[in-house]
Design a binder for these strands. Structure first.
Length: 421
RNA sequence: CGGGGUGUAGUAUAUCGGUAGUAUCCGUGUUUUGGGAACACGAGGGCCGGGUUCGAUUCCCGGCACCCCGACCA
């Protein structure tokens, strides 16, 4: 993509109405636009990041047998009355509105009811199970206080998968798979090293739920990390009894602030009962379906990455979710430079490498460098009088201070080298 | 929802009961091009409603919006 066609521009000044680092950097760099408290639009660069994250999650969900679908945002009152969650006393984050004919509808704040209601028609026999439908969608929560930029919005983008299993054993087997799946996702998104599977309160049907908590001072939760075991315990279940049952020692735990980027939860029959989700087994006997829920906030994950990976110049995107792999800068207006830049731009595109090409005229080198640092694309390639005199193109990683000059073929080889996540 | 704070050009800010200033951004022109270039000219502003006052952006009251702390949640 040519930067001359990218309508967003970077800002020098930090927004006055944001304190959160993620919002500050994402707004300055032109990834998001604030609409109101807790509500952000995703601009071209921001949407590319969201899509990259979505692709990673989709791959991992499909790998465990997930089937993607899309539930509606408008929610039917009658469906939610079955689980007694239409009630404002039970759920205080509903956005509700009224139809012309006087009927009420709500905007999705979670998906258990929608899935249970839909799957009711399709689950009859043991042959129909297990199944793992999931979707990506915008979720609406009327938070009393949204905060921290895109870490906690009133509208946010998430993935939710629900597992429908024949029994506890089958459920548990899948649940364990999802633990690994989630670890893969956060590793691939570039925050695996600071993200811990965290034991949290479980509800009626299991002792624990599992949260995936990323260490950051911007976090809302307090967790106790056991570095050796690679796990953590949420403050909400931090008791001697729990520590004993997990076999961890208090003196080996380190307290940290963290943000919950995902969670997995055993639901048991909490929803299959009210929705009458049953199946006949091989003997013709009716059994309750056993459910689980598995959520990830994609917009929150994006914010978490920014919150944890940046320097004083701007964002440092992990290659896996960066809006582009390469930021190509043409410095100066010589025909030689322009032609060389156009040439490499075309070749990289042909090789399938995503390039943001700063082809803007009349901008100083310093301004292009500053923009590149702020936007945070992993590889910066410079074409200039100097680079051409040195025999080619200067490539520098965002995380490194100095680059090197490569010939065209060397550069292409270098950029084509696969990085594994 | 309790507590605290803030509302001034697109953005970030200053001052002031009496013509609202600066930077950036934007437009035009000339000169620039390896770390947010220089000069000149130009365009652009007081959240809403009420009150006090000769006069309110400033003081008072109400509202709304936004931020932070707490409570609550992916």
């Amino acid at each position: 993509m040519r930067q001359s066609k990218l309508f967003t521009k970077t800002k020098k000044e930090s927004p006055a109405d944001e304190v959160a680092l993620n919002a500050e950097l994402l707004i300055k760099a032109g990834f998001i636009n604030k609409e109101m408290a807790g509500v952000y639009s995703f601009l071209p660069l921001g949407l590319r990041v969201i899509k990259k994250i979505e692709d990673i999650i989709r791959q991992e969900m499909d790998a465990v047998g997930g089937t993607e679908m899309r539930t509606s945002v408008f929610q039917n009152k009658e469906v939610w009355e079955k689980s007694n969650r239409w009630n404002d006393e039970e759920v205080d984050v509903w956005f509700k509105t009224t139809l012309k004919n006087g009927g009420e509808v709500g905007l999705s704040f979670t998906n258990e009811e929608a899935y249970s209601n839909i799957l009711k028609q399709y689950i009859n026999s043991y042959r129909d199970l297990p199944i793992y439908p999931y979707d990506f969608k915008n979720i609406f929560r009327n938070e009393t206080r949204s905060k921290s930029g895109i870490l906690r919005g009133r509208e946010f983008y998430w993935k939710a998968l629900y597992s429908f299993s024949k029994n506890e054993e089958e459920h548990n087997e899948f649940y364990e798979k999802m633990k690994e799946s989630y670890k893969n996702i956060f590793r691939r998104a570039g925050i695996g090293h600071i993200t811990y599977m965290t034991f949290a309160s479980g509800g009626t049907f299991s002792k624990f739920s599992h949260e995936f908590q990323t260490i950051t001072s911007a976090g809302e939760d307090t967790i106790f990390v056991d570095e050796n075991k690679g796990i953590a315990i949420n403050k909400e279940v931090y008791t001697d009894e729990v520590l004993d049952s997990l076999g961890v020692k208090k003196e080996e735990l380190v307290e940290n602030k963290a943000i919950e980027v995902g969670n997995i939860f055993s639901l048991g029959t909490k929803f299959s009962k009210p929705f009458d989700l049953k199946y006949k087994d091989e003997n013709g006997v009716e059994n309750d379906v056993v459910m689980g829920s598995y959520g990830i906030g994609l917009s929150r994950l994006m914010g978490t990455v920014v919150e944890t990976l940046s320097d004083d110049k701007g964002i440092i995107w992990p290659e896996s979710i960066a809006p582009f792999k390469v930021h190509l800068l043409a410095l100066g207006g010589d025909e030689n430079i322009k032609n060389s830049a156009e040439e490499i731009y075309t070749e990289l595109n042909n090789k399938g490498i995503e390039v943001l090409f700063d082809d803007r005229n009349d901008l100083s080198a310093g301004e292009k460098f500053a923009d590149a640092d702020l936007i945070g694309i992993p590889y910066r390639v410079v074409v200039s009088k100097r680079s051409l005199a040195d025999g080619g193109y200067e490539v520098k990683k965002r995380i490194e201070q100095t680059g090197k000059v490569l010939k065209k073929e060397e550069l292409i080889d270098f950029l084509l080298t696969k990085v594994s996540y």
